[in-house]
Nucleic acid binder design. Structure first.
Length: 276
DNA sequence: GTTGAGCGTT
């Protein structure tokens, strides 16, 4: 969806597309439009969003009708601080169909691209399908003529092409590793395998259930909270008891049920290891 | 209140 509320891109024939990087996650197309429209006729402003969360992905596309206006906008707005962040403005190298485009120019020669299949287009599918091909699989033309290539290339060559949008999820998962896994793994496998399944399912449903944000500015932090480890409150005292007492996890599990019931029914003020 | 490499749409 574009800034003008239509479905899909507007008349993009012979427009010049600028990629605006490093915008704030709170910056909306309405913020960028007046800024860029001062330097020429802006045909469209589009901020790609994460399809699941709806969050901005931190960059935008601004389309101009004339190339000289686009160039002027680059000169004037590159490095400008918008919403607290120094934006980078450059010609887009790829069109909406991941075609290589010339200085951001979008002509009508993008009927269909054999390089991509539609199921691979969306970023959500990249990391799910390919083990390592979840990054842009479309061929990048080496003609990076515009400025700013060196900085971004440095970032890319740093081996950080794992920058998929699931970074917060990765952080959460890496943080959620509990030291409990160190204990005896005799019959604890069923327990160890059960817990993450429950959690991931709960997380998924909660994310889907809470996807209700209408405008980006009204975004509620509950989204990120649901993506966080989100360990159940009742499990923390049980985990403490497990790691300290060193009892088997089956026992702990059966106890955790009764404990959680007790703790929820009673005033929870009891110490979890009061049964020693 | 929150992240920060990078190229796109109901």
């Amino acid at each position: 969806m574009s800034h003008f509320g239509r479905s899909g891109p507007p008349d993009i024939r012979d427009t010049y597309s600028l990629l605006v990087l490093n915008i704030s996650f709170r910056t909306s197309a309405d913020d960028l439009f007046p800024l860029f429209d001062r330097h020429g006729k802006v045909v469209d402003v589009f901020i790609p969003r994460d399809r699941r969360t709806g969050d901005s992905r931190g960059f935008a596309f601004v389309r101009y009708k004339h190339i000289e206006e686009a160039e002027k906008a680059i000169e004037r707005l590159h490095g400008r601080v918008v919403d607290g962040r120094e934006i980078m403005v450059q010609f887009a190298k790829y069109g909406p169909n991941a075609e290589s485009i010339d200085r951001g120019r979008i002509s009508h020669s993008q009927d269909r691209s054999p390089r991509r299949s539609s199921c691979f287009r969306h970023r959500d599918n990249y990391y799910r399908r390919g083990s390592r091909s979840r990054s842009r699989s479309y061929s990048r033309s080496p003609s990076r003529r515009s400025f700013g290539g060196s900085r971004r290339d440095r970032h890319r060559d740093r081996g950080s092409y794992h920058r998929s949008r699931s970074r917060s999820l990765n952080r959460s998962l890496s943080r959620s590793r509990s030291p409990v896994r160190k204990t005896t793994r005799s019959r604890s496998q069923s327990f160890d395998e059960d817990r993450p399944r429950h959690r991931s399912k709960d997380r998924k449903t909660s994310v889907l259930a809470k996807r209700d944000s209408s405008s980006p500015r009204d975004r509620s932090p509950v989204l990120h909270g649901s993506l966080s480890p989100a360990k159940p409150k009742v499990v923390s005292p049980v985990q403490e008891g497990m790691s300290r007492g060193g009892r088997t996890k089956q026992q702990s599990r059966s106890m955790s049920h009764s404990h959680s019931r007790e703790l929820s029914s009673r005033s929870r003020s009891r110490s979890p290891n009061s049964d020693d």
